[in-house]
Amino acid sequence: MSQQMFELLLKGLWETTVMTGVSGALSFLLGLPLALVLVTTDRGGIFENLSVNRVLGGIVNALRSVPFIILLVAVIPFTRLLVGSAIGIAAAIVPLTIAATPYFARIAEVSLREVDRGLIDAARAMGANRWTILREVLVPEALPGIVSGFTVTLVTLIGASAMAGAVGAGGLGDIAIRYGYQRFETAVMVAVVIVLIVMVCGLQAFGDWLTRRIDHR
């Protein structure tokens, strides 16, 4: 593999990392509150509000049911509005975030729902208000599940960012398609796949390690 190819791969790796990292961070910041709202506004929740719950649940389901490749194209006008272009890394981050937020919200929601009701009752019996319950009970108790769910989200984002490459976003997916597929450079294709495998394995291992560290159950 030539020096030029190596630099190309390195650039791709960097672009994929940026796309995954930024959209991952954004989907965490948006998805966790969304998950908290979904859990706490549900029947019996500490902020019970069924109409809010239904509307948000509906939006999440709608977004989750659109295949990513279609979402990617469908949100182009919105992307242009937001970042001024529909091409490039910044442009790819918009649909990636829109897809990953409801995905992560649903995963985090499952972990939050698994928090024992007895713990919430105990906190209420101690005279805690609802914000304290969120801060001291709900989030810390669900954190191991949230972290491992976020790892899954990031891995999914790496895959999705490769798809975003198809519409000119750059990154490893873009390289694999342009060189490996369209120019029949099998060596590049294999190299990209290996880099992706290493990335995903490393990320998963780190996520698992972090989950174990914070899990005291």
């Binding site: 024992d116 007895g118 713990l119 009752d121 105990a122 001291e136 009970v137 810390p140 108790e141 954190l143 914070i214 005291h216 159950r217």
Partner: peptide
């Protein structure tokens, strides 16, 4: 069932 917080 004690209801202690496992994360604390």
């Amino acid at each position: 069932h004690f209801n202690l917080l496992s994360a604390k």
